[in-house]
Structure formats: structure tokens, C-alpha cells
Nucleic acid binder design. Structure first.
Lengths: 247, 247
DNA sequence: CAGTGGTCTAGACCACTGA
DNA sequence: CAGTGGTCTAGACCACTGA
């Protein structure tokens, strides 16, 4: 029972959900209410074309977007299937600590403990794609939220990508901001761990050496080459990472 | 200098990157090499149409996908702009512990410490959208990786969404698997923290009470209603969360 | 073979922006 | 007003799947 529409539709003047969006909302609602079990066959493009009285390209866009959102699986020559949810990846934002603190309406400042050139140890050289003993920049900062130490940032930088690194005033700019400006982040891997601070970190953060800390280690790559390796240590009692998952 | 192509293009028999994909690859490569600074104006659809000799819908698809990947910002009536990278959200996968352990090629088993009905305390009732004192299901399990305790799972479940919860054999199925089957996950919030285990958790995990632990607290919603609240405690020395960011 | 999704086209109408 | 992106259409050719 196809709905017949005029060949040239007039778009309603304001708003009126776009047809591709209507299809998405309809299918999302049905999926949410368990209309199809994971792996079950869903309507074909042709069926949706007939049901909504719209062109195939429009249905195709809706289904393609649902696929990229992980809600459906599509197989050429076979059909569209309800996806397995729950095993879906979640979104987590790791922002520059300066932005994060300001976004909360708090005051941020940083104290620089160390900022100099060193020679790469073998492990570090490997991570930064440099020969052992090559010069690297090393900085150690503490970031404060309204005067309370929130993060200890221990960072190594590949000098080729940020030759001016040592002359930057990290009281005014964060290392992350400087690096983003000179070497656009194109790839990064990170781990989130729980561990104890080193004795130096404990002192800088003004926490007992027994305080469990949230440790994020991140390696950043720009234009195919490693740029920086950073260890971010946060007192467990003062910091947590938040995330969400909404398909 | 537009490239003129025949009106009806023959698609190469095998592969040959699709035009919309060629445009994406081209723009990604340029962005990666810093062709446009963040916020800078990029070519319009019309310019790309001329440059690639393809139709506007095809260019539009390429740009729309780049936008949904967070690489460009588009503003109707104004243009397409290079996005701010780096402040982009990363992807993090929190999988069912059973799957995660098996994916490593290890042996998983679980031991059930507790599985019963309780009355909701006020805080819990709030989280699960129930009245205070309402019945809730409470389970406490330990998950083992090759015989080593990896995760302590302390979970509360809204009985309305999983009435059979207490009769499930969690030696064979994980709570996550059961809940996914009866109530498709539609929304979830989580936090990742570092902290000390409770004395009970320390005993169950066979770690000292001073061992820093990675704690994940997650609340899951299905069809608009809270389903479960879980606290996952992992010894910091045995577990870490990994993630990546690749635009 | 029929049915499925993957993709492209040439044209259209529209809303929005900023000069 | 010209230029931008947002969206839709009707048709087309294709590759792939499974009967």
C-alpha cells in the first residue's frame, strides 16, 4: 500500500523533519523497542521506499547513516540487519586540561617543574621513532584547578615537530595547545590505568605516596610520525573520566 | 580547469575507488598535511564538483561524511571549514569481560558470591528510577582470566526489565549477556576512576587492601528506563583500558 | 534469476548568509 | 543579490548473494 505523493513536493516553510530523518527516527524507535532482534532481517530499501513514498536515494541515506552509527549491519546482495548493540564502542572525550577546567568555570594555572633537552633512552626512542640517544624535549608540569593540584603532566616531545617547544611559556599556554598548533593531531593511542604516583609525582600533587591515581598514557602521531608521549597522573580522589554511549 | 568526463561513466570492473571516496581521501590527505588551518575556509561543493568532474550529490556525500567524522565544520550559507582536531572525542570500547578475555585467547570463568533480592536504598532507588525500598536484584561476581581474578562485578538490576535475573546461571552466562538479551542497551553513562577496593573486594580479588584499582561505574538505560547500575573493580596491576583516536 | 545494497547523475527547490 | 550548503528525485548501472 504505497503512499502516493505529488512528483514535486513543496517543502514546508519551517522545520518539518526531512524525509531521510523521518526514516531514521522511525527505524531507531522500532529498534529501541526491540522490533527486530540483533541479527534479524530488517526491511529492504525497496520496502521503505514504498512505505514512506520517497525515493530510494533518500532511504539509502537513512540506512547508510544508521550503519555508520552502528545500529544496523548491511550486506550487499543480502539485506539490512539489526546490529548487536551493547558491544558497541563508547565515546570518551579527553580534552586539554586547561579547557576542561575552564569549562567547569574554575581557574586554571600551571607550574613548570622542568623543561629541557635530554637524550632519549632506548624505550623512549622507540616510542618516538628516534635513534637511541637522540635529543628529546622533556617537560614536567603540574596543573591546578582553583589552586588544587589536579594533574601532573610528564611529557616527551620529538624536537623535529616542535622545534620551539623549550621556549614556550607554559604558564600561558599548555603543551597540548602548543603541540596542536604546530603539529595537527592525526592519530593517538592511549591507555587508562590505576596506579601509585612516583614519589616525585606524589610530592608535586601534594598527595600521600599511597594515593591511588588515575594514569593516562598517550602517544600522539602527526603526519605519520610520533610527536609526543605523555603521562598524565591524577589523584584518584580528585579526578575521574566520564563517558557515554548513545546510539 | 574542469576535467570533462563522459556523461555516463563506465565503472571499472573491479574495485576502482568510488568518486565520493576519492574526494574524501583527497581532502583527508590535504587536511593531514595542514593545507588548511583549523577554522580556515575549504573549497565549496561547487569548486569540488568542477575539480573532480563529478556531480554535486557525490561531493556532498563526501563532505557530509567528513563532517560526521569531525574533520570539517559546515555552515549553511557560509561554507566548509577545517575542524579543530585534537579536542575531538576518542573511541573507547568497554566490552563484556567474558568476550574480552576470550578474545585474548584466555580462559574465562566466574564465581558467584551473591545473587538475591534486596530493598533499594534511597540513592540506588534514584539511580534505577524506583521508589525507595522497592525490590531490586543484587549480584556480586568475580571474573577470572586464566584463573586470576581480574574483575569484581557488583551489580544492581531493575527487576522490571529482567524478571528472571535471579534464576540465571552466571557460571555459564554473564550478567551483561543476560541483560543485553532481555533489554537492549540503548543508552549508558559511565565513569572511570582510580580508588581503593572495599575490604570485601580486596578479599575477592585476592589483592592487598592498598592496591590501587581501576573502577568503572556504569548505568544502563533501555527504552528510556534505567536497567542496571554496575561497579566494576579491577586490580590496577592486572588491567587497563585502551583506546585510540583516528579521524 | 530475482532481490539486495552501492553508487552516480542532472536537475531541482530550498534556507541561510553576508555583501 | 550571489554564493553557500541541505535535501530530494527518478532513473540508471553495477556487484553481490542465494535460490
Amino acid at each position: 500500500m504505497a503512499i502516493i505523493r505529488p512528483m514535486k513536493t513543496r517543502h514546508a516553510p519551517h522545520a518539518a523533519v526531512a524525509p531521510y530523518h523521518r526514516v531514521k527516527l522511525h527505524l531507531k524507535a522500532e529498534l529501541q523497542h526491540g522490533r527486530w532482534k540483533p541479527g534479524e532481517l530488517m526491511p529492504s530499501e525497496a520496502e521503505l521506499v514504498a512505505q514512506f513514498g520517497i525515493s530510494r536515494m533518500t532511504v539509502n541515506r537513512a540506512l547508510r547513516e544508521l550503519q555508520s552509527e552502528g545500529l544496523v549491519d548491511r550486506v550487499q546482495g543480502v539485506g539490512t540487519f539489526a546490529a548487536q548493540l551493547g558491544r558497541v564502542s563508547s565515546t570518551l572525550t579527553i580534552r586539554d586540561i586547561h579547557e576542561e577546567i575552564e569549562a567547569r568555570g574554575h581557574r586554571h594555572h600551571a607550574e613548570v617543574t622542568l623543561c629541557r633537552e635530554e637524550r632519549a633512552t632506548s624505550g623512549l626512542a622507540l616510542q618516538l621513532g628516534l635513534p637511541e640517544g637522540a635529543p628529546v624535549f622533556h617537560s614536567l608540569l603540574v596543573h591546578f584547578d582553583n589552586g588544587i593540584a589536579l594533574q601532573c603532566e610528564d611529557r616527551f616531545v620529538n624536537p623535529q615537530h616542535a622545534p620551539d617547544y623549550l621556549s614556550v611559556d607554559f604558564g600561558r599556554t599548555t603543551p597540548t595547545q602548543h603541540l596542536l598548533a604546530v603539529a595537527p593531531t592525526w592519530e593517538a593511542q592511549f591507555t587508562i590505568q590505576s596506579g601509585l604516583p612516583t614519589s616525585q609525582e606524589a610530592a608535586l600533587l601534594a598527595v600521600p605516596a599511597t594515593e591511588p591515581c588515575l594514569v593516562i598514557v598517550r602517544r600522539t602521531v602527526s603526519r605519520g610520525e610520533p610527536v609526543t608521549l605523555v603521562r598524565l597522573v591524577h589523584p584518584g580522589s580528585r579526578y575521574q573520566v566520564q563517558g557515554q554511549f548513545t546510539p
